Simulated assay, not measured.
Amino acid sequence: MPEDVVADITGRFFLSGDDEDGGSGTPTTGRIIMTKRRLVLATGDGKVTIPLSSVIDVNVSSAPQHVKRFFDDTVTIGYETDGRVRSAVIESAGETVETFVAILFRCLLNGRSVAVKHPARVGGRVRDTPVVEGRLRIKARRIELVTDGETVGIDVEAVMNIDRGNNLGGSSRTTLVVKHVDDAGLSTTTLIAPEESRYVNLLARYLRIEYDEVREEVEEIELTNPEKRVLVSVHATGGDIDFTNMLDGDPAYVTNVLNAVRNKDLIVDTPDGVALTPQGRIIVSQRIEDVNA
């Protein structure tokens, strides 16, 4: 039965092992075709098929050293074949690569069986939450863990830290430990253990790649000194603050500053006052020294 094609792009690619001396080989131009089960790199001389079940790593904009001089916007796919780990470096236009990578991660991770413990920790307190089985769902800058009881969503912007563990409910399954901020603004830890350990690596890679894109976007946001002071003050006080005294200004000026920060999607009004958005938290954590200067 024919497989549905989910991506079909033109680009250049290089397969490790094509050039045994590691230095003189050059990329080949051809078609990169992907279904939900395999990746095909095709040229006029033939094709190479990479089963997605053999993929163990995906890295964006990091070509192997000996071929870096040939490539710009790339994705490097690590896979196992004949007992060896090999890699395929693929290059195409920047937006095309981004779309290709997004589709690739969906094919690799969507629907995978996972064991979930949520929340494993809230703030500094360990929770006695049972481990349940579920399915992984990949969305734009978000993952969802779908179980019989609920759907746990984690936005990439809200991720604070990613680590690995090997103890989930008494089992030794390799586990992804994701620390993130929940909808109430609390630091929450969720444990995720896919059936196969390689999916732990792929899921961690997906979250880091997506987070790096968010961070790059946030770094482009320009802030005035009063706007920086607002972000740090909201972070330090939880939003319970007299902004007029803090900014030493009249009410109209304070309103203008707060509106400017709101329009940049860095703060949001809540029933308890003002809170940082995930983007606002990233700015405070990334630029804390600059803000305090």
Score class of each variant (00 low, 15 high):
A193C: 07
E196F: 11
A184N: 14
S171V: 11
V177K: 06
L203V: 09
S197E: 10
E213D: 15
I192N: 00
A193T: 03
A204D: 07
L203W: 06
V178E: 02
L202A: 05
L207R: 00
H180F: 11
Y199L: 08
D212C: 05
S172Q: 13
N201R: 14
A193I: 04
H180N: 11
V200C: 04
E195T: 08
N201C: 12
S172M: 10
I209Y: 13
R215F: 05
I192L: 03
L186C: 09
Y199Q: 06
L202S: 01
T188D: 00
S172G: 09
T189Y: 06
A184P: 01
V181Q: 07
A204Q: 02
K179F: 05
L202F: 11
N201Q: 15
T174D: 13
L176H: 02
G185Q: 04
D182P: 11
E213C: 03
T188H: 00
E210P: 08
Y199M: 05
K179W: 12
K179T: 14
T175M: 10
T188F: 01
Y206K: 10
G185T: 03
V214P: 01
T189I: 15
T174W: 12
E196D: 15
A204E: 05
A184E: 14
V200P: 00
E195K: 15
L202N: 00
S171Q: 11
S171A: 10
L176V: 06
R173D: 07
L186F: 13
Y199S: 09
N201V: 12
V214G: 01
D182T: 04
R215P: 01
V214S: 10
E196M: 14
E210N: 13
Y211R: 11
L202H: 04
